[in-house]
Amino acid sequence: MTDQHAELDAALEAVFAAARAHLAAVKAADGRIDDDEVWQSYVALNNASYSYDERLLDTFGEVTPWDVESIDPNEADQRFGVGLGGVDGDESGDPYPRVLSVRQRRDYQVPSVAALVRVAEAARRTGLAEDEESAPVEGVGEAVLELLQAGDGSLGALDIPELEPLDGVVMVSEVTEPLAVDAYDDTDGVGPFQPADGDRLVGRLDEHPYAADDELVDDDEAGRVG
């Protein structure tokens, strides 16, 4: 057996060893996200596979079905943020921690109060026993709150024909401290959204309803006619 063949056999054994180590790390992580041992063993398996593929090509002109490229572990850590401080929930290694605040406002037009209340009451009855009665929904504000609670809590729950979206705004800010909801009364609708000293507005996005966009498209198309 030539030295080249021996090196090829050794490269294949390295693939086997790396695959076993990777499997052991995956089992030990048990589904834990961004586990450093899984990442390191993945890189080792990738590079062992790449090395074997290259040696097989050089020795016999054959290739494996593995379409991989060599990974520099140091460069990969910098690029993907894996293996750096803070990956496993420990942010002590990050010299530049940040807290971001996203504030959103969206206004709605109510074409029919009765129709909106009916939809909210139907949402309130969802999940109740057949013999259990739900309290009536009183007013548009309570109707919207009920729909938010019945949905996922996002504005997507209000994407219904009974509400026509108006203009909205989204503001992203870097803040000094995260929100402490218990510091504000339940009736305080201003305090939680009020910027504090030291907060920095990064940017503001103005949102416009889809109906306005459609009208704009129609106007543009009308202007191009002829």
Results as ranks from 00 to 15, higher is better:
Ser49Phe: 01
Tyr50Cys: 01
Ser51His: 14
Ser51Arg: 04
Ser51Ala: 06
Tyr52Cys: 02
Glu54Met: 01
Glu54Pro: 01
Arg55Gln: 07
Leu56Gly: 03
Leu56Cys: 01
Leu56Phe: 01
Leu57Cys: 08
Leu57Lys: 05
Val63Pro: 09
Trp66Ser: 07
Trp66Met: 05
Asp67Val: 00
Asp67Pro: 02
Val68Ile: 05
Glu69Tyr: 10
Glu69Asn: 10
Glu69Pro: 00
Ser70Lys: 06
Ser70His: 11
Ile71Trp: 08
Ile71Lys: 08
Asp72Ile: 01
Pro73Phe: 02
Asn74Lys: 06
Asn74Asp: 15
Ala76Ser: 11
Ala76Pro: 12
Ala76Asn: 06
Asp77Glu: 12
Asp77Met: 04
Gln78Tyr: 07
Gln78Ile: 05
Gln78Arg: 14
Arg79Pro: 03
Arg79Val: 02
Phe80His: 07
Phe80Arg: 05
Phe80Gln: 15
Phe80Asn: 15
Gly81Lys: 03
Gly81Asp: 09
Val82Leu: 15
Val82Met: 14
Gly83Tyr: 03
Gly83Asn: 01
Gly85Cys: 03
Gly85Thr: 02
Gly85Arg: 06
Gly85Glu: 02
Gly86Arg: 11
Val87Asp: 14
Asp88Ile: 01
Asp88Tyr: 13
Gly89Gln: 06
Glu91Met: 13
Ser92Pro: 09
Ser92Ile: 04
Ser92Val: 04
Gly93Met: 11
Gly93Glu: 05
Asp94Gln: 14
Pro95Asn: 07
Tyr96Glu: 15
Tyr96Ile: 08
Tyr96Trp: 13
Tyr96Phe: 11
Arg98Ile: 07
Val99Cys: 03
Val99Phe: 14
Ser101Thr: 13
Arg103Cys: 11
Gln104Lys: 14
Gln104Thr: 12
Arg105Tyr: 13
Arg105Asn: 13
Arg106Cys: 04
Gln109Thr: 11
Gln109Ile: 07
Val110Ile: 14
Val110Asn: 03
Pro111Asp: 08
Pro111Arg: 00
Ser112Gln: 10
Ser112Ala: 13
Ser112Cys: 08
Val113Trp: 15
Ala114Gly: 09
Ala115Asp: 15
Ala115Trp: 04
Ala115Pro: 03
Ala115Ser: 12
Leu116Cys: 00
Leu116Ser: 08
Val117Ser: 10
Arg118Val: 01
Arg118Phe: 08
Arg118Glu: 10
Val119Lys: 11
Ala120Asn: 06
Ala120Thr: 00
Ala120Pro: 12
Glu121Gly: 02
Glu121His: 10
Ala123Asn: 05
Ala123His: 10
Arg124Val: 00
Arg125Trp: 07
Arg125Cys: 01
Arg125His: 04
Arg125Asn: 12
Leu128Thr: 03
Glu130Val: 03
Glu130Asn: 07
Glu130Thr: 02
Glu130Phe: 11
Glu130Asp: 05
Glu132Ile: 03
Glu132Ser: 08
